[in-house]
Write a protein that binds this DNA or RNA. Sequence first.
DNA 1: CATGAATGAGTGTTCATTCAT
DNA 2: AATGAATGAACACTCATTCAT
Lengths: 192, 192, 192, 192
Amino acid sequence: MAGNKYEEIAAAAIQLFEQKGYHATSVQDIADAVGLQKGSLYHYIASKEELLLKITHQAISGFVRRLEEIIDTDLPVEERFRQGIRTHMQYITQYLSMSTVLLREAFSLGEPHNEVIRDLTDRYLNLWTQIIDEGVAAGVFYVKDSRIAALTILGSCNWVYRWFKEEGKYTAEEIADQMADLFLNGLKKGRT
Amino acid sequence: MAGNKYEEIAAAAIQLFEQKGYHATSVQDIADAVGLQKGSLYHYIASKEELLLKITHQAISGFVRRLEEIIDTDLPVEERFRQGIRTHMQYITQYLSMSTVLLREAFSLGEPHNEVIRDLTDRYLNLWTQIIDEGVAAGVFYVKDSRIAALTILGSCNWVYRWFKEEGKYTAEEIADQMADLFLNGLKKGRT
Amino acid sequence: MAGNKYEEIAAAAIQLFEQKGYHATSVQDIADAVGLQKGSLYHYIASKEELLLKITHQAISGFVRRLEEIIDTDLPVEERFRQGIRTHMQYITQYLSMSTVLLREAFSLGEPHNEVIRDLTDRYLNLWTQIIDEGVAAGVFYVKDSRIAALTILGSCNWVYRWFKEEGKYTAEEIADQMADLFLNGLKKGRT
Amino acid sequence: MAGNKYEEIAAAAIQLFEQKGYHATSVQDIADAVGLQKGSLYHYIASKEELLLKITHQAISGFVRRLEEIIDTDLPVEERFRQGIRTHMQYITQYLSMSTVLLREAFSLGEPHNEVIRDLTDRYLNLWTQIIDEGVAAGVFYVKDSRIAALTILGSCNWVYRWFKEEGKYTAEEIADQMADLFLNGLKKGRT
DNA sequence: CATGAATGAGTGTTCATTCAT
DNA sequence: AATGAATGAACACTCATTCAT
């Protein structure tokens, strides 16, 4: 029951942070959105920043958890790579507001709040690097530096929050497949 | 020269916006950085937001202009593509602070300031789409949707502002080449 | 026993008021200290201020009662004076936290709460004035104005809350004797 | 000119802190008293607490400076003692509001602001201890512990802020003399 | 050109108190 | 008796902007 109200607050904050940005959203805005007095919010949150932390933490955790599950699979690397992209796309588009808050507003987290997010973000990058490394070890991927490759791929996959529209031409899956095709093809041995 | 002082202010603002973020930077901070009183700043800028607009406008214009020059070249598509990536990387890393402000803080621009930036950003995307389309027309690129491909590539290239370090393992050129290799290889006909 | 819980609350409040001050102590702090919810406190106290009133009332009453007992004694004035100082010192040091709250925080009591304390404080001053007057009448004390003398002595005796340390060089009794010596000597006829 | 406005603010704050107490006085109250907007106050003060610090610092400095001047005199100890009390009384009564703020509200200073005040307060006590020590060395005072004696005397002299009334029966000088008589008499060798 | 005093709306946060359960 | 959600007013403080000098 108590958690319920917090969820409501977090949901409202996600919407507001996404639409107006973290700084442009006042605690008053959030309170209005959930029909509470400004002061009453503080029964559920410690501070505005801690609320942002919890939201971004939930978001990045979702990415990490899903990718870890895929990695633990015994699918061939290539397939794990494609699944990773698909899942990333599904998640980022399904929770587009939350992901936007993560990718755009986490920067506003000050010390020491930002650490947790930075660590999990690093972890996510490392998971991708690991997949690429495995592909290289298996002789199916050819890259100069797997970390650069991972950053390149992650950039594409994250940037999505900036342009994806629910009502757009393609579904998340279709986009994921186009991306995966592009990257898988690119990762395999070039003909030159 | 009057412009001189404005440049100083803009330079200071770029540094501050990059380090602390637009919202966390006060007009006082900027004034301090250039050794002026807060009030005196307003002889050079109309408002804090207009300052941000000018900075981001300069940044995105730089990207656009450079890519247009490359496109006007009569190099083969493949080469223009590679040059586009290289130039993007050179520019984004050479003007890393300014690019960061563009890519991270332009969102804080309200109506109607944001329009100019949005338009130029769209234009930059269209230029990339155009290159890919030419590649497809020339039979050297194979993509399902050139706009999606352009967004994918742009995501990678822009994301760079988040992780590039001057003192890192690779130079901007080396990273650009790794990216170009990956994308060029990916854009060409897959063997599957 | 209901009173039991109130005593617990008062004891906690005394500690907190002494350490942090009345204003800097929140009702939450007190609730935490006694392991109750903030709201539950209000079964035992009417308000934070009323709690302060009760504490200070208890404190000043203790001073008054003890001095009245000494006055009712048939000891010689000089001895009653010395006993008064000793008892004041014993009481103030034994209940140092409570005395501190009385002497430092009673000022925060608003109308009409402050009246009771003011009245009892006046009464305590009057008791001291009375002792001195008796000494003068008995020809053993020589003072220009007994009220000023009483205020002077009380100032010394109360100030103790600001510097007395349990683990200090002297016991409360030793300090009391030094003070009593100084004052008794001073109150007797000067040689000039 | 600038200092002028600050003086105005400090004067208003002293009055308000004395009448209502530091905590019960809002920044708004002070702003109202000087006819400024709340925010405008912050051109002159860094914070409410820093304002309190400055006030209390000025107050305690006044006490210290005056006593140091007396000590540097070549008057006989007894006379310096009497002058010290007189000056303390003159100062505390002339600047009664400010002294009240010092003696009653300095406690509200948190770390690290309180240190300065604590140090100066200690210094003032040491000056008094020094005078008594000199008296003892000169053979005119007889005390067991000069620090206890100093604390006793200071208690009386400071307590004055609690009861002195401008329109009272005695002037500051008369009270000072009564106190000085009592203490000087008490400090000299008792007949017992 | 530069100042710096002044504004006034706005910020996140605290807190004593109430009350339905 | 105890909870804990909710209040609502108050709080110290910030800030972009203006403007008379």
